[in-house]
């Protein structure tokens, strides 16, 4: 019984995050801007390539829209592409390898698994192209071994995300032992 309750509450919390997404995005943007001291003015239009996992999933479609909105806001160009399917790790690697030669100033990647994009990232490092992992992460040890440098990681720790509401619930129901027995 308790299990189901937990799952239910997790859903609620995710929904509430979703509802407040717009304001959260604005807040995050402002936070970043104050941290960095405002966008740097240049004459050059930077080109950024973003590689997502798939566009057959609303999550990644939303992310694509976010990328494009940010590009508009900050005045750079962005190309967003994705692998043909969620499980096709080697096709995703092929994509990134081909993207390397297009001369992007920076790359944003969302690897299908922590290892599959490392060969291409190490080539990017050789070419001194900064790479940021977004949404999913790259295994730091393996990356270091392969000479691949990840300049930034922006990922969700799903374990932590699950733990928070769990803790919250445990806190609330601390005294009510009958629930545990059920």
């Amino acid at each position: 019984m308790k299990k189901y309750l937990v799952v239910f509450l997790v859903f609620i919390s995710i929904f509430s995050i979703g509802l407040s997404a717009q304001s959260a995005f604005e807040r995050a943007k402002n936070d970043v801007l104050t941290e960095l001291g405002g966008p740097v003015k240049t004459n050059k239009v930077y080109r950024v390539g973003a590689l997502e996992i798939t566009l057959a999933n609303p999550f990644w479609v939303t992310m694509k829209e976010g990328f494009e909105a940010a590009a508009k806001d900050f005045g750079f160009k962005i190309d967003v592409v994705a692998a043909p399917s969620e499980g096709d790790a080697s096709a995703q690697l092929n994509y990134l390898e081909t993207m390397l030669i297009k001369g992007y100033d920076a790359l944003c990647i969302s690897p299908i698994n922590p290892f599959n994009l490392i060969p291409a990232v190490s080539k990017a490092t050789q070419r001194k192209i900064p790479v940021i992992a977004v949404g999913t992460y790259v295994d730091p040890q393996a990356a270091e071994d392969a000479g691949a440098k990840i300049n930034g990681m922006l990922a969700v720790d799903f374990e932590y995300q699950g733990k928070l509401p769990g803790q919250y619930i445990a806190e609330k129901f601390k005294d009510k032992k009958m629930l545990k027995q059920q």
Binding site: S85, E86, G87, A89, S90, F115, N116, P119
Partner: peptide, 16 residues
């Protein structure tokens, strides 16, 4: 080749 290149083996690998 695929496993070595990706440094990983996906049980849902490319069925296509």
């Amino acid at each position: 080749i695929t496993t070595a290149r990706l440094n990983s083996a996906e049980p849902l690998g490319s069925m296509s």
